[in-house]
């Protein structure tokens, strides 16, 4: 079962790279992007030959897929650096604010979701309403207004920017506000999701049995938590790839040199190798996250072990 899961993950990854190749090949013209629309047909043809774009499609597809599998995406047309090293360099800034934000949001969403499901009267309704309002507020609004209120108005954080390498001053200051805004963006939908998960689990009949046997509410809550491990993990793993991309909006507004900023710059420059590289790496992260989640559920939830084929 585990082997089959890994195999299907690998097949999906190959499919992704084929898909990315065809989409970019069909939609975008690297040569025109490089030389501009006014270039002469001879110059375009020469450039096409130089880049090897005049070779048969299937041959190029094969080369693209096989080099993508070894995480070789060629060189960025703008910067001249290999795409992989560009990606690696921008990963750190993104993770620096995304991981704390993600942890904060997940912890508070789990707590809030449990409270909203456990006490369904006024406290639950207020929590649900707040989460709905938060979720309906576009991330663009949250970031723009959050930056204004916390950085400009309260002056508790630097307005934007990122510490230069080697400059350890104020690192925290630059990280805290983006991380906080990340958490606010993620909190609304996650809280609602976890509330629904816990509601379903709290209605399970075996809890009445536990209570009838005289278990305290605290022990019962532990059973609820364990029972809802699978859907919670599924949600967390679905969120993992967001960690790598960060929020493009946050990185744009705060001028953080992360993956999202790299993506925006690459798209605006028409730097297709970088876009392809980012798309493929993020897809790989997503697929790996899903496989890990399945593995974790398999070890955590005995029900999946008893009927390995159920739910497939």
């Amino acid at each position: 079962m585990l082997l089959r899961r890994l195999l299907s993950a690998a097949v999906t990854l190959v499919l992704v790279s084929v898909l990315v190749f065809f989409v970019v090949d069909a939609l975008a013209d690297q040569v025109t992007q490089d030389l501009g629309r006014a270039a002469s047909p001879e110059a375009l043809a020469a450039r096409r030959h130089l880049l090897g774009l005049d070779r048969p499609v299937l041959l190029r597809l094969w080369q693209h897929v096989s080099s993508a599998m070894s995480f070789e995406f060629g060189e960025s047309a703008r910067h001249g650096h290999p795409v992989a090293s560009l990606l690696a360099r921008s990963l750190l800034p993104t993770l620096a604010y995304a991981v704390p934000g993600f942890l904060l949001a997940t912890a508070s969403a789990l707590f809030g979701g449990f409270c909203a499901a456990r006490w369904r009267g006024w406290p639950g309704r207020i929590l649900l309403g707040l989460a709905t309002i938060l979720m309906s507020t576009s991330s663009v609004i949250i970031v723009v207004i959050g930056q204004y209120l916390l950085a400009h108005r309260l002056r508790s954080f630097p307005v934007l920017g990122w510490p230069l390498p080697g400059d350890a001053r104020d690192v925290l200051g630059f990280i805290v506000l983006p991380a906080l805004l990340w958490a606010v963006i993620q909190l609304g939908p996650d809280l609602r999701h976890y509330r629904a998960v816990f509601l379903r689990e709290l209605a399970a009949p075996h809890l009445e049995g536990l209570r009838a046997r005289g278990l305290g509410e605290f022990r019962v809550a532990r059973h609820v938590l364990r029972g809802s491990a699978a859907p919670v993990l599924a949600r967390v793993s679905a969120r993992l790839p967001h960690l790598v991309i960060g929020s493009v909006v946050i990185e744009h507004v705060f001028n953080i040199p992360g993956v999202g900023a790299l993506l925006i710059a690459a798209i605006q420059d028409g730097d297709l190798a970088v876009v392809q590289g980012i798309a493929f790496c993020l897809a790989a992260a997503t697929i790996a996250g899903q496989a890990l989640c399945d593995l974790a559920v398999f070890t955590l939830d005995p029900r999946t072990r008893a009927r390995p084929e159920a739910g497939r």
Binding site: V20, H242, I278, T286
Partner: peptide, 16 residues
Amino acid sequence: GLTDAVAAVPPVVMLL
């Protein structure tokens, strides 16, 4: 299979 592949690429990348 196609769905898995399309869904794996994050929406932001695809859309932008």
